[in-house]
Write a protein that binds this DNA or RNA. Structure first.
Lengths: 229, 229
DNA sequence: GTTAAATGTCACAAATCTGTAACAAAACTA
DNA sequence: TAGTTTTGTTACAGATTTGTGACATTTAAC
């Protein structure tokens, strides 16, 4: 599949963590690791993953607390979470308490089981009208507002994001600055047409991953377009 | 575009090919089959399909090479292409998309998945209305502001572009320098009428692809026109 | 309230285009 | 053919358009 899937694993057991990571990466996931709750929250603030696997017993804010915090924030309120717990620990409590976790797994568990749970959750969370635009080595996940080039994540400001999206909806088509102002900035909003240049510049810069070349063509006296050659 | 839904399948696996064909036909497509790259190119030259499904590992020119060749030709530069690959490595995928493939499917795949990808691509490719002016070996894509002669891309400055476009809108018609100044440069803009000569010269030069001859006729004491003979 | 991120403008540099003039070549005229 | 007119060709300086980095202001995040 062409879909970008990123998973955060929060686990303080230094023997278990690499194992989980290994299995996830083998299955094509991009993995971020944290060993305590604080670290986890930082990473999530930075970038919201597609799914989080959190151990119940971690230092600092516990898995449960992390869970609660995540649920409170709008951005992460729907983030699929899997809680890991040791057998005999407070299994029922985890399940019974309404922590907001979407699933929980009892240690020890098999890689197969883990993958099954993950896939199940992801299917559920992304099945609702997943929209991805791809063009050459660029891809945009419209649901998550994430942009990738050559499988590397790109951070774009809102305007650059809209610009790129607009270009990709008609690859190759040339848009004048006025047209772009109209469709990206919005009808009736007046800004200098040269502002477009600056944002084009920013978009180019942001998308400039090593090993790629400028993908926006400028058509003198006409405007800009995606380079489709 | 018409509702002619024709798909070319290039696959050397004699077990897989009939399966794909069967599924496509069941969905109302007209299927053409090829088992190697050469055959595929011949079929495409004969008749450009609405979409091509090409296996990565085929004899003669590989899937990617075929892809590249198709992208270079103007007639097929926008033909939607799906690459099939047995290796599921990320690297291959990137390479596939870089080469110009529009989508990429890893074997094994389900008929459902295949159909989903096909429909998605067809929807995309038929939605953008193309404005193209063609005359002999010259063609202008108005949306993309691109000019070709003998399938070679030509770079023109703004004035030359407008000049050419103006000529092609009435092939054969003779325009005086004054008329050209009026319609290409614009009403009320005063420049020496001999400026037209210079731009005609530049246009001729730019369009002078090897194996072609001067396509602008000068009509002494009257003006210029496209040569329609 | 402090920090950070995003936005719109501007000024200057770099790239490209344009109009002209001057001369060469070709076409026409007598 | 010589002379005249028209067009081809080239070079170049000035004009336009675009690239780029910096800055102040606004907006959002925490």
């Amino acid at each position: 599949m062409s879909e970008k899937r990123e998973i955060l694993v929060v686990e303080d057991d230094t023997a278990l963590l690499p194992m989980i990571t290994y299995n996830l990466e083998k299955n094509g996931f991009l993995v971020k690791e944290a060993t305590n709750g604080e670290e986890a929250l930082l990473l999530i603030k930075e970038e919201i993953p597609s799914l989080a696997i959190i151990d119940w017993m971690i230092p600092a804010p516990s898995g449960l607390e992390v869970c609660r915090i995540l649920r409170k924030k709008k951005e992460t309120s729907k983030l699929p979470i899997i809680i890991l717990s040791a057998k005999g620990e407070e299994e029922d409590k985890v399940r019974g308490l309404n922590t907001g976790a979407d699933d929980y797994i009892t240690k020890p568990f098999s890689p197969t089981e883990l993958m099954a749970r993950i896939n199940s959750l992801l299917r559920r969370s992304t099945s609702s009208s997943e929209e991805i635009i791809e063009f050459k080595d660029i891809s945009i996940n419209l649901n998550e507002h994430k942009v990738y080039r050559k499988n590397k994540k790109i951070h774009l400001g809102p305007t650059e994001y809209k610009l790129l999206k607009h270009f990709l909806e008609n690859p190759g088509r040339v848009y004048s600055r006025e047209q772009l102002l109209d469709s990206v900035w919005g009808h009736g909003i007046y800004v200098e047409s040269r502002t477009v240049d600056t944002h084009i510049r920013r978009l180019r810069k942001a998308m400039n991953v090593p090993g790629t070349k400028n993908f926006i063509r400028t058509v003198r006296a006409a405007g800009y377009s995606i380079d489709i050659d």
